[in-house]
Amino acid sequence: MNRKTTYAAATAVAPTIERHFAQQQTEARLRGEGNVAPAPSVEVVEALIDVAFWASLRKEEGQSPKISLAFLPPDQAGRPLLFAQRLPLSSHTLTKLAPGVERAGIHLGVWHENGELYLWGTTREILSLCFVLDVSEPGLLVVKHRRSSGFGKFANVAVLKGDVVKIIDERSDSLPDCPEVLTSLLGFTTPSSWNASVNVLVQLAVSMRAHGNGGTLLVVPAGSDKWQESIVQPMQYAISPAFSSLAELMRQDKEDRSHSLWQGALRREIDGVAGLTAVDGATVINDQHEVLAFGAKILRSDGNEQVEQIVVTEPVEGNEAIIIHPVYNGGTRHLSAAQFVHDQRDATALVASQDGRFTIFSWSPCEMMVHAHRVDTLLL
């Protein structure tokens, strides 16, 4: 593959990404999964990242491109739209095509022949563990792959922003006190966590981040009103009886969850609940996915001390935990969420910032303090 790479980060990260896909696909085949996409070589990974990076810095009619590239041959894609002639894989071609393929779920297909990469068309259906490269914004690239179940958030492998490269550390889910939602985000390569059921909190996190207004979602135990001790009373937007449409969908038989009608209904309910988080204050749901309130104002409950320190981590390789005062972790949303979890230690708080930052707050019995998990890189 005689392509000169000029984006240094592509050369640096390509071997790591190649090893990831080779390992995951080997393990998938050992589990008996035969319908798995081909693994990309170092040269393919490097070339795709390089051309996508330079395309991300170009504009077409004043708009920056948003593109998703999928590495697989057309005969392994589902219902592909095929170009009559192969198109060269270049930043110019990607920029020209971008306006027509920027909608979510559309992938530009890339394959190779005689050492040359080319674009063969588009598809919405790709194989398990297919190498996907998203151009999210100028200079921001995300390497990911589809989960085995084929539904829900793709698994992120690496995030590149200019010369900064973050490799997702999947071992983070084995750490003590790792909350369930983070375990699911990191556990995409283990089918049991996603094939059996869809993790609603992950989908809510993605939708919360997507609406761009920022917001807080508090997850409290079902059957307990103790969480109300940490909420200003009376609540202006309390819901009675609890809104249970999302919960009812999740109680349906697992066989129904593969049907497009059920998946479409789930997306609508997810977006409806996530939309409530845009209202000033916190949205409250229980761990059975019933909506209890929105626009709720958090306060420090009687008899509890003000939260003075939290531990902060990010599930990327090379990250080290730091202990800081919560005021240094974000604005009022982050501070109030940390206080809520400090007081209600069986609860979890999900906080989205307007700038795209996303944090999961949970109580850590090991550290005996609130643990803030930065998960921006997992939700792109």
Rank of each mutant, 00 (worst) to 15 (best):
M1I: 14
N2V: 11
K4G: 04
K4D: 09
A8Q: 04
A12F: 06
V13C: 02
I17K: 01
R19K: 04
F21A: 02
Q23I: 02
E27T: 01
G32V: 02
V36H: 03
L48A: 14
D50E: 09
F53V: 03
W54F: 12
S56G: 05
L57R: 10
L57V: 07
R58K: 14
K59W: 14
P65V: 07
F71Q: 11
F71T: 06
L72E: 00
P73I: 02
P74E: 13
P80Q: 01
Q85K: 15
P88A: 15
P88T: 13
L89W: 06
H92F: 15
T93L: 11
L94A: 05
P99D: 10
E102W: 15
R103D: 09
R103E: 08
G109L: 12
H112N: 15
G121Q: 04
G121I: 02
E125C: 08
I126C: 13
I126E: 00
L129S: 13
V132L: 04
S136A: 15
E137S: 15
V143K: 08
K144N: 03
R146L: 15
A155H: 00
N156P: 10
D163N: 12
V164Q: 02
S174T: 11
L175P: 10
L175Y: 00
C178V: 05
P179D: 00
G187F: 00
F188R: 08
T189C: 12
T190A: 12
T190V: 03
V198L: 13
V202F: 05
V202K: 07
A205D: 01
V206I: 10
M208V: 05
R209A: 14
R209I: 14
G212F: 10
G215A: 00
A222K: 10
S224V: 04
S224D: 09
W227M: 02
Q228T: 06
I231D: 02
Q236K: 14
A238G: 04
S240C: 03
D256Y: 12
D256R: 15
S258E: 14
S260W: 03
E269S: 07
I270P: 07
A282N: 13
A282H: 10
T283H: 02
I285C: 12
D287A: 11
D287Y: 07
H289I: 10
H289D: 07
H289R: 11
A293W: 09
G295I: 03
G295L: 05
L299Q: 15
N304S: 13
N304F: 06
V307S: 02
I322E: 12
G330L: 06
D343R: 02
R345N: 05
D346W: 00
D346Y: 00
D346V: 02
A347L: 06
A349M: 00
L350H: 07
F358I: 04
F358N: 14
T359P: 08
R374F: 07
L379M: 07
L380H: 15
